[in-house]
Write a protein that binds this DNA or RNA. Structure first.
Length: 282
DNA sequence: AAGTTCTGCAACCGCGAAATT
DNA sequence: TAATTTCGCGGTTGCAGAACT
């Protein structure tokens, strides 16, 4: 593509005041319409032709993170959660690489998810000396080639907390460093629990012992349905989250469940371990 | 009900890599 | 090969709405 001389570019970008801040619906419409019609050819020039008083950078960000039809909205599923946690432990803050493993998720979204949910619930330690920037890591990777999995323990960001289920109790920063081997040994059940904690849905289900079959049917509990209206709506909301988290697609129309005969931990264990034929029948 | 604090997320910024001239 | 521009990444900020007092 032809490049625009710096002088000309400077002139064109100064023609209007560059707008910042939240995008209006009209701006979204203009950008979407332009990209659909002409495609993405040059972010820095695009806003001029699209009639937007925005920088190319801003347009790119808006498209990539919000307007693109490829962008998947909504809460992260358990599977996505697991990938984020594992890849973070493996790669650190390489959000774009992590996002690449999550179809429809952007690096910004993964980063936000991590900072708002995971960091809190996993008890991330952000000791400055342990911090390693992605830029630095990119350089390291180039220099060292094929050594992506050999980040020294002292450089790796640390996950750990006294209350976390993912790691043993951590009393000092030094003892909290995790090895790759330790990462691999993490109990899969803990993913589900921490995931539920992230979405604040951890304690609604009684612990009872039922065998979880490949098909999970949650049947109605008339007592709850009829007598505890508020709890009912809350539980329904929680199960909506579970079903979303599990990417369960075949959800019927009637709403039925039995919380007193359902062991959520066993269920998640089964899900995580690969039984993929689960159905909520509502 | 009003004021304050907290939380989640969209968007900006600076930087380095890659591409182009 | 050097200079310049564009792209993409990760850190950070600011705002709106929710939650709390």
């Amino acid at each position: 593509m032809p490049r625009v001389p710096p002088q000309q570019q400077q002139k064109s970008t100064n023609m209007k005041e560059i707008k910042k801040g939240a995008w209006s619906p009209e701006e979204d419409r203009k950008l979407r319409a332009y990209i659909i019609k002409y495609g993405i050819w040059n972010w820095s020039q695009m806003p001029i032709f699209a009639g937007l008083s925005r920088t190319g950078k801003s347009c790119r960000l808006r498209w990539v993170n919000y307007l693109s039809p490829d962008v998947k909205r909504g809460p992260f599923s358990l599977e996505e959660f697991e990938i984020v946690v594992k890849m973070y432990q493996e790669l650190g803050n390489r959000w774009s690489t992590i996002a690449a493993r999550l179809p429809g998720r952007t690096d910004n979204e993964v980063k936000n998810f991590f900072h708002t949910h995971l960091k809190k619930h996993l008890g991330l330690k952000t000791n400055a000396p342990l911090k390693i920037t992605a830029r630095r890591k990119r350089v390291d990777q180039t220099k060292e080639n094929a050594k992506t999995n050999t980040i020294k323990a002292e450089e790796r960001p640390v996950l750990g907390t006294t209350s976390s289920l993912l790691l043993p109790d951590v009393s000092s920063p030094c003892s909290s460093a995790m090895t790759c081997e330790e990462n691999q040994m993490m109990d899969v059940a803990n993913f589900s629990q921490t995931y539920l904690n992230c979405y604040n849905v951890s304690s609604l289900v009684d612990q009872s012992n039922i065998n979880v079959e490949n098909t999970v049917i949650l049947e109605s509990n008339p007592e709850i349905d009829e007598n505890i209206g508020v709890a009912d709506s809350q539980l329904r909301h929680q199960f909506d989250q579970y079903s979303h988290a599990c990417s369960i697609s075949d959800i019927g129309t009637s709403f039925n469940y039995s919380i007193d005969q359902f062991d959520m931990n066993s269920f998640w264990l089964d899900v995580i371990r690969g039984s993929d034929d689960h159905h909520f029948i509502f």
